[in-house]
Design a protein around this nucleic acid. Structure first.
Length: 427
RNA sequence: GUGAGCGUAGCUCAGCUGGAUAGAGCACUGGAUUGUGGCUCCAGUGGUCGGGGGUUCGAAUCCCCUCGCUCACCCCA
């Protein structure tokens, strides 16, 4: 037997049944982002591998072991984007978008790719909605972006989200802190788990984020970054917090919050939600003032976030998705080949008038056709058999009211012409 | 990369410590109703029990390998 080809590991089909949830999320996001002055941008799904190496950082997990990297036919190394901030910043540099609006407010919706073991809420092809503000380092804009994100969640009736924030310092204070931290960890190395011992040399900050029971106590005694911020970072963070408070956004400071991408500095944040399982981060983001310069552009400060759409779908309550069927309400039921020809012509005219209808092709019997019309939830069935062909009087059956009446082609097309702008036919 | 759990009809699942032609509900098709749906009743289609090997008189059931899915670690959205 032929082996069935299936969707590759970590990818999945989003079937028509679940499409309303996705469409709701996308349209709500577009509407809300527009009210904040954000404009949509789409960048290619793949980029020069170099972009992510430079932007995200060689040492990160994403770059070192999670990228879909491949040579194209000319030998260039390309990579399916694992996130989109680097691409957006690349595009702003390439097209000088900072000349066009300052700050630049952009958002995006699209698929990302990371080679990881799939689990609940985590896929190899996953989708993000994200937003970036480029060209300003005002702390108020961070609070505004977070407010926008929370408003989206509220509008989608997603409950139980928590905002945690932190400042991870900047190039002028972080290196000193990292040394301090590294030394503190190595002093009591034996008290940390094997993973943390490994992390202490690879990426010390991560030690702060370890969830191992046994590591909690030694972590407590480690220096906190909040005590070692430079004056600029400290004041920026305080202002950011006060802007959140002015906007009445509840938050928690977690000095152990660490992000996985090297370009972040100063403000970082995460929104988690208990409905998601182990991968409980619904959205995350932060400031990336050095990224533009790193990618060869003019120094340009930025702040942004990304939200996982699959995770948002998991957290989306059923009542938020309203039944909104856009499928046709009229089903044409021809009985026999000759009737099919006539019906096909009528269907064309209906659609040219901007209305919709189903055309039943394989009506084995009237009974089967009506059953099928019922199943696709059509409101009316137009029956076209030998009798109707003869008389020119077709049978229009109201499947809900269980009534039927005769109608001519002319009357039908007149009904189609009425109700301008609506795709459903009004009888 | 590591660990655990699970693979029986399109879907959700029964199938007791190994026993004869592998079952149910839903879905699908047809009939009761020669051109009238949803409800009801009746009947039917559909499975190399994920794949391979082994133990046995006999394997969906036990053992080994393999593939797949799920969840968790790691990491993140």
């Amino acid at each position: 037997m032929m082996v069935m080809v299936r969707a590759v590991k970590g990818t999945k089909d989003i079937l028509p049944e679940e499409m309303p949830r996705w469409q709701l999320i996308e349209s709500t996001a577009r509407n809300i982002f527009a009210t904040f002055g954000f404009e949509e941008i789409r960048t290619p799904l793949f980029e020069e591998t170099e972009l992510f190496h430079r932007g995200i950082g060689e040492a990160t997990d994403v770059v070192s072991k999670e990228m879909y990297t491949f040579p194209d036919r000319s030998g260039n190394s390309l990579t399916l984007r694992p996130e989109m901030t680097a691409s957006v910043v690349r595009a702003t540099i390439e097209h000088r978008l900072e000349l066009y609006r300052n700050p630049l407010r952009l958002f995006y919706i699209g698929p990302m790719f990371r080679y990881e073991r799939p689990q609940k809420g985590r896929y190899r092809q996953f989708h993000q909605i994200g937003a970036e503000v480029i060209g300003s380092d005002h702390p108020a804009i961070e609070a505004e972006a977070i407010e926008m994100l929370l408003l989206l969640l509220e509008r989608l009736q997603v409950r139980g989200s928590e905002l945690v924030i932190n400042s991870i310092g900047c190039p002028s204070c972080r290196p000193d802190f990292l040394n301090l931290l590294r030394n503190a960890v190595s002093e009591k190395l034996e008290r940390f788990c094997a993973d943390c011992r490994d992390r202490s040399s690879r990426n010390v900050l991560r030690v702060l984020d370890c969830k191992q029971e046994t590591c909690q106590e030694p972590i407590e005694s480690l220096p906190a970054i909040s005590d070692h911020l430079c004056e600029g970072c400290r004041s920026h963070f305080l202002q950011f917090r006060s802007w959140l408070e002015k906007r009445r956004v509840p938050y928690q400071v977690r000095s152990r919050l660490v992000r996985g991408l090297d370009y972040y500095e100063k403000t970082t944040f995460e929104i988690s939600n208990g409905l998601l399982g182990a991968q409980n981060a619904l959205a995350g983001g932060g400031r990336y003032d050095g990224l533009s310069a790193l990618l060869g552009g003019k120094p340009s400060k930025g702040f942004g976030f990304a939200m996982g759409m699959e995770r948002l779908v998991l957290a989306l309550p059923e009542e938020a998705v309203k039944e909104s069927s856009s499928t046709p309400e009229l089903c044409l039921v021809p009985l026999g080949e000759k009737a099919l020809e006539v019906a096909a012509g009528v269907a064309s005219k209906i659609r040219q008038a901007g209305k919709g209808c189903y055309l039943e092709y394989e009506a084995r019997s009237l009974k089967a056709a009506l059953r099928s019309a019922d199943r696709i939830r059509a409101r009316w069935a137009l029956i076209l058999g030998d009798n109707e062909l003869q008389t020119g009087q077709w049978v229009l059956k109201d499947l809900t009211a269980q009534t039927q009446r005769l109608i001519t082609e002319t009357e039908l097309l007149e009904a189609c012409a009425s109700g301008a702008g609506k795709t459903q036919i009004l009888f």
